[in-house]
Amino acid sequence: MTDPSEYIAQHLRNFSASSSDHPASGVLNPYALLLPIVLFVVLVCIAAFEDRWAMFRLAPPMSFRRRLFVWWSCAWRQFLASIPLAVIGGVAFLYLVHRLAVPLGHLSGNMLQHATGMFTAMLSLVVTAMPLIVAPLICTMLSLPVYGYMVRKGLASHALAVPARFGLWRATRLGVTTLAWSGVGTLFIADLTATLPHRVAEGLRLLFFVVWGMYIVLPRQIRRAERLRQVLSAK
């Protein structure tokens, strides 16, 4: 394997073959929900340690209309910020494939030839897919402070309490809160709607994502911003 385009094409063929071998059964797989449920429980435990039972409570309470507007102010800023991040991730992936396709292909082939067990075979697969792992990781690391800054601007536009000084570390912490709770919700919603017809699934995903953002993600964002502001004020 000497051509990066062949490297990509081979992975696409493998993906298509694996997808055709496992057609959708139309029945919800409870094991698919295990990961988002476990992650949600972990996040709830962390949030409960900080805020006890008020982890999703807003003080003062917000009306549905105001909550929707605040969520949207944060969401559209995050969406716009994600566009250049996606471009960066795509460029990083193409660069990694161009530079590493040949050596990774040779290394993976050598590992498979000398494989003595399942672990070596799995490690070979990880080595082959390294560009697919590294590029999203780069994009995710860059997105954490960017999302934090965008959320702060969204909250500040509605006169909510935010830190006056907002450095890289505070932005990253707010970004981690945003990405963690949003990511768990995305996984959970995707698994719940995976067996539904496409049009129905798309509509329900959008509805559930908005509700999750308004009543799960937004309270955690506001509480994180408030906690960061309190820490800054105490100094």
Rank of each mutant, 00 (worst) to 15 (best):
L107N: 07
L28P: 02
A171R: 01
M214W: 05
I216D: 01
Y147A: 03
V211W: 04
I138K: 01
S25F: 03
F119L: 11
L34C: 12
P36W: 01
R57S: 13
L35H: 08
W212I: 07
P103R: 13
H158E: 13
H114E: 13
L232A: 08
K235N: 10
V44H: 06
Y215S: 07
R224N: 09
W169A: 14
F69G: 00
L104R: 00
R66I: 06
S143T: 07
L96D: 03
S108C: 13
V176Y: 04
P131H: 05
T186Q: 00
M62A: 15
I133P: 05
V200E: 12
L100H: 06
Y149V: 05
L94V: 09
R224W: 03
L137P: 07
Y149A: 06
A135R: 02
I8H: 05
P36G: 04
R205F: 04
Q230M: 14
S157E: 06
R66D: 08
M150A: 01
L107R: 09
F49E: 15
V231D: 12
C74L: 02
V162H: 02
S143P: 02
W72E: 01
M62P: 09
G203M: 12
L39N: 04
V38A: 08
R229P: 02
E6H: 08
L142P: 04
F64L: 15
D191P: 03
V91P: 03
S19A: 15
A180W: 04
A101R: 01
R173Y: 06
N110E: 15
L228W: 00
S108R: 10
P30N: 05
Y149D: 02
L179Y: 09
G89Q: 01
Y31N: 10
C74D: 02
F93Q: 11
V184W: 00
R67E: 12
L35Q: 12
H22A: 13
S182C: 03
L137Y: 09
K235P: 07
L207H: 10
R227I: 11
G185Q: 03
D51A: 14
T120I: 15
L204G: 02
A180V: 10
D21T: 10
L100T: 08
R224P: 00
D3H: 08
S157M: 07
V146F: 03
R220H: 14
A54D: 14
G90T: 12
L104S: 02
V146L: 05
M111N: 14
P60M: 12
A59C: 11
A81Y: 03
T177C: 10
V126L: 15
A17L: 10
G167R: 14
F15W: 15
